[in-house]
Amino acid sequence: MTTNQTSGGFIGDLAEAFAPPAAGGCCGAPASPSPASDTAQQADAVATACCGSTSAAQQAAQAGCCGQAPAPAATPAEAASTGCCG
């Protein structure tokens, strides 16, 4: 592992798991911004490895990843859910 942390359990408030902050990555993969060196890359630095734009990255937590349309809803509740990265 790349961590030296030995104590387990939640860091922070457990309840945050019900509304986690957007990690900026897809499917648990942390965001990997480009090694930005010019303006265009810096503008894209908050985009994720998979999402092509800042807005897509920002929407990834609430909507389908990377502009992906959600799969057909099986129930009304499901319509608010998303697909996932892909």
């Binding site: 961590t3 942390q5 030995t6 104590s7 387990g8 359990g9 939640f10 860091i11 922070g12 408030d13 457990l14 945050e16 798991a17 509304a19 986690p20 902050p21 957007a22 990690a23 990555g25 897809c26 499917c27 648990g28 990834a60 937590a61 990843c65 099986a74 129930t75 509740a77 499901e78 608010a80 859910s81 998303t82 697909g83 996932c84 990265c85």
Partner: peptide, 27 residues
């Protein structure tokens, strides 16, 4: 959380846009 304490695995809240959302979506 209790299992993570037992096994020494650190956890934090983070977006998991994966199959878990389909199961949660049906209640």
């Amino acid at each position: 959380d209790q299992a993570a304490r037992l096994t020494g695995v650190p956890l934090r809240a983070g977006t998991m846009a994966s199959d878990n959302r389909r199961y949660a979506a049906v209640g």
